Amino acid sequence: MADLNQIRSSIERAVSSRLTQQADQFRKEVIEQVLREIEPLLASSGASGPAQSLPVSSVSGILSSTISAIQASTVQADILKALLEGVSKFSARTALFVVRGTALAGWQARGFADDNIRGLTLDGSKGLAARAIQGRDRVSGAATEFDAAFVQQHGAPADRNAALFPLVVRDKVAAILYCDTGSKAGFPTDFSAIEVLARYTCLWLELAAGKKTSGPQVAESSAPASPSSASARTSSTAPTASLDAGPEVGNQSADEQELHNKAQRFAKLLVDEIKLYNQSKVAEGKQNRDLYRVLREDIEKSRATYDKRYGGTPVAPARYFDSEIVRILADNDRSLMGSDFPA
């Protein structure tokens, strides 16, 4: 008689393969639907900068090809490179800076006379950068409000303005995307399209991080000790979405490790859903430091779902559901859950 574990393993592989095929098709359909939805918006809004806009058909084509390139990438560096390539079609100059505390560490750029900005460290605690990080939304203003020394070194944009797009991954601003119209007027600029790409990239970074439990990682150097002028150079820094690895699970077999990974991913999925459908309650609970009281019903329903699947397994003591509740809903601050939180 065939071993039950072998049968289960075969079934899981078959189901996983089928779901992957379905997911790929679903993603393609989502991309097409998104493009159809935003096409009239792009047509009516035109370019967000002073330059002439691209034809809507060209915008849709660039968005589609860029989203496909992002989707085909699983490593953070490749995802961000695909983003920069796409953004360079809508902005004469663009640069990606990784947020390291109050510092912005240069990573890669497109369209500048010198695209090598690795090691470049700017102050992100003031001006446009601070506004983008605090507001978690696109900001525009005089380019010198971003960094006067940076503008002086690379040349001011023709209209003297710049736009910053924060990349928010797992509720943290992981990077800042700088865009301007270039030193010569006339480049077709579309900041609305860039915003679409930036938001899709954030979603894909989260998805890629959730799917990947091992394999190549984007190298991360230590954060710069302090912000300096645009001419300062430090050790190279590659971007990361500041993704945490979750609770330690010790030395286990491959099967045990996979069970832990699945349990943590399932817990994250459940808590993400709570946050998605209760954003106002989450904000209220954080402000009043009583998240559990406000979301008790949703939390306990999801906890029951998690326990039904993993409560009787070896991963139960790891309490992944409680960990994800605190991490995702309370930004790793347990006190925001309130005194009646049972974890």
Rank of each mutant, 00 (worst) to 15 (best):
V15H: 07
G135M: 12
R36A: 11
T74A: 06
Q21K: 12
Q134R: 15
A109D: 04
G61Y: 14
I70Q: 04
L122H: 06
K126N: 14
A69Q: 03
P50R: 14
R136N: 10
I70P: 02
A82T: 06
A130H: 04
L41F: 11
G119Y: 13
R118H: 06
A129K: 07
A105C: 07
F97D: 02
P40S: 09
S16I: 01
L19K: 08
L63K: 02
G141I: 09
I70S: 02
I117G: 03
R138V: 15
P40T: 11
D123W: 11
L84I: 04
Q71S: 13
I79R: 01
R8M: 12
L80F: 12
R27T: 14
S48G: 07
A23Q: 15
G124S: 02
T94W: 04
A47K: 00
F112Y: 15
V56E: 08
S17Y: 14
G49S: 11
G49K: 05
E29Q: 12
R100F: 05
A95P: 02
A132T: 12
S88V: 12
S57H: 14
Q134K: 15
Q52C: 03
G135S: 11
S64R: 15
S58V: 11
R118I: 03
G86F: 05
E29A: 10
A95K: 00
R100E: 10
L54S: 08
Q76P: 00
T102W: 10
G86Q: 04
A77N: 13
L42A: 00
I11W: 11
S10G: 09
K28Q: 15
R118V: 01
T94G: 00
V34N: 10
T66G: 02
E12A: 09
I79L: 13
V15D: 08
G124I: 00
A113V: 13
A51K: 01
A47V: 01
Q52F: 08
Q108A: 05
R100H: 09
G141A: 09
T121N: 15
A129Y: 07
L104H: 03
I117D: 05
I62C: 01
A72N: 10
E39A: 14
L96I: 09
R138T: 13
D115A: 08
A77R: 12
Q33V: 06
Q22N: 09
V56R: 15
Q71G: 08
A69E: 02
A95N: 00
A51V: 03
G111H: 06
D115T: 11
V87Q: 05
D123V: 06
A43N: 08
L120P: 00
S125L: 03
D115M: 06
Q71R: 14
P50Y: 13
L96R: 07
V15E: 12
